Simulated scan of single mutants.
Amino acid sequence: MKINHELYTMCMIEKDDKVLLINRPTKRGFPGYIAPGGKVDYPESIVDGAIREVREETGLIVTDIIYKGLAEYCEPQTGLRSMVFNYLATSFEGELLEDPPEGELIWIEKDKAMELPMQDWFRSRFPLFFQTGTFEISLVWDKENQAAISSIEKNYVERVKVT
């Protein structure tokens, strides 16, 4: 079986006590509120892909970005491994697009964001952007039975010594 790797980014944009989210319509897939992001173009770097996606989806140019973690999704039956590199942007330049391509853009207080409709996987990931350190999420999915085979979530606040 051929293994297919897909690389994506997601970038939470934070200003003061608010975050910028996109209200993605059903027709675009993954409906509900979500942070900007998308596919990494070959051969751009992962971080450059995150910065480009923010610019394309919001009009903002990221000037300060922090790597927050990796979320991966694997389907053994199809050979798909999808990896999402997650970032937090805390400063930027520019103005929001008047007609954004992925959906309506809204600034919302961080503590109110979880009240918005969003995909379960994004809801569980949302607080991880604001925690100290980095995170790693790995989900192996049985596509045929629509069930998780395994799921791992780790948070790295300091170095972990492997013995």
Rank of each mutant, 00 (worst) to 15 (best):
H5W: 14
Y8G: 02
Y8P: 03
Y8W: 09
Y8Q: 14
M12A: 13
E14A: 10
D16K: 11
D17M: 08
D17N: 14
L20V: 06
L20R: 01
L21F: 07
I22V: 15
R24F: 04
P25W: 05
P25V: 09
G29E: 01
G29N: 03
P31H: 08
G32M: 04
G32D: 07
Y33H: 14
Y33E: 05
I34L: 12
K39M: 15
P43G: 10
V47E: 15
G49L: 00
G49E: 10
A50V: 00
A50Q: 05
A50F: 03
I51K: 10
R52D: 09
E56V: 04
E57M: 05
G59L: 10
I61W: 00
I61E: 15
V62L: 05
I66L: 13
K68G: 09
K68M: 09
L70T: 15
A71S: 13
E75H: 07
P76Y: 11
Q77A: 14
T78E: 14
T78N: 11
G79L: 00
L80R: 13
R81H: 12
V84R: 06
V84C: 10
V84M: 12
Y87G: 07
L88V: 04
A89H: 05
T90N: 07
E93P: 02
E93C: 05
E95Y: 06
E95H: 08
L96R: 06
L97P: 03
E98F: 02
D99A: 11
L105S: 11
I106P: 02
W107R: 07
W107E: 05
W107I: 02
I108T: 08
E109D: 15
K110Y: 07
K110S: 10
K110P: 06
M114W: 08
M114I: 12
E115G: 02
L116P: 02
M118Q: 09
D120S: 12
W121F: 13
W121I: 13
F122K: 03
S124I: 12
R125P: 00
F126Y: 14
L128W: 15
L128S: 15
F129G: 09
F130P: 13
Q131E: 15
Q131C: 12
Q131P: 02
T132V: 06
G133V: 08
E136M: 11
I137Q: 01
S138A: 12
W141K: 04
W141I: 08
D142I: 09
E144C: 02
N145H: 11
N145W: 01
I149N: 02
E153F: 01
E153R: 12
K154F: 02
N155V: 15
N155E: 12
Y156W: 09
V157D: 09
R159I: 06
K161N: 11
